[in-house]
Nucleic acid binder design. Structure first.
Lengths: 140, 140
DNA sequence: TTTTGTTTGCAACATTATTTCATTTGACAT
DNA sequence: ATGTCAAATGAAATAATGTTGCAAACAAAA
């Protein structure tokens, strides 16, 4: 499904910033930070528009946001759009050295049962450490 | 263990800002945000000193930081200091409405096995939803 | 009490996010 | 095609959050 189709499905207007953001995330193997998306947007990038577009796309469930630490926020396409599994239930790995964030699609999140009275909406699991590229045990 | 003792144990100097921060967290049932700590510090609060003290206390493992979303960072005493379980292995609950953060000390984090080459340092689990106070199903 | 190195607190700056409002633009119906 | 209108954009201004350099103050030990 391309950007235009995704937007139409969610009854959102097809605008240049939205399309560019979706394309940027769609062509990336990994979740991207604002600056990484910015680089892919070129002239089309405007800080305020970016925040608002992202907000709209988040609300629609087209993308999702992963907060690795308070200075590292990344965005990824929600693979629901692709007919895959639900994005919310897999684990993310964050490399403390290179700041890369990887979706560990094969690792599902355990179902935690909350104390009574609490309502669960979503569950975020972020494992932090060193990725294969930054692991000194592994020779490149 | 009081603030002075905790600092001494970790070979850190006993200074007013550090003591006040530790006391603030120690007397609170819940993790506190910067502003919540600030309120408890009164005149002793200075923005820069706060950040640096927190940094020092984090490095020493005296406190820990929970990032619920990028605009909500909270701090809590590491209960290791109290001889309890290790803080890193329990789940946090974040109320999306009142922004309260609760340590669910009884819910342990599942041990996730990573793909080979990855090194795990820590694992953060944040469940988001509505707390008992904000749950409309529960009458106050 | 004097020394020594750490910590504090100020100023300045950098980054991240939000609000207001005039202008532009996409989508729909002519 | 084209006019209409609500929605989205982009600019300026502001707020909130986090960092760095440096001189003065302070804690801890001799």
């Amino acid at each position: 499904m391309n950007a235009a189709e995704i937007l139409k499905t969610h009854q959102l207007k097809k605008t240049s910033p939205r399309v560019t953001i979706i394309n940027a995330l769609q062509t990336s193997q990994f979740p991207l930070s604002e600056n990484e998306v910015k680089d892919k947007m070129g002239e089309l990038y405007d800080r305020i528009t970016f925040y608002r577009s992202v907000h709209t796309l988040l609300e629609a469930g087209i993308i999702h946001r992963i907060v690795a630490d308070n200075t590292t926020v990344k965005y990824a396409l929600n693979h629901c759009n692709e007919g895959h599994h639900h994005e919310a239930d897999h684990v993310h790995f964050f490399c403390e050295q290179c700041k890369a964030l990887v979706c560990l699609n094969d690792i599902k999140i355990q179902s935690y049962s909350l104390p009574s009275g609490f309502v669960k909406k979503e569950c975020d699991v972020v494992i932090k450490g060193l990725c294969t590229s930054c692991n000194p045990q592994i020779e490149q």
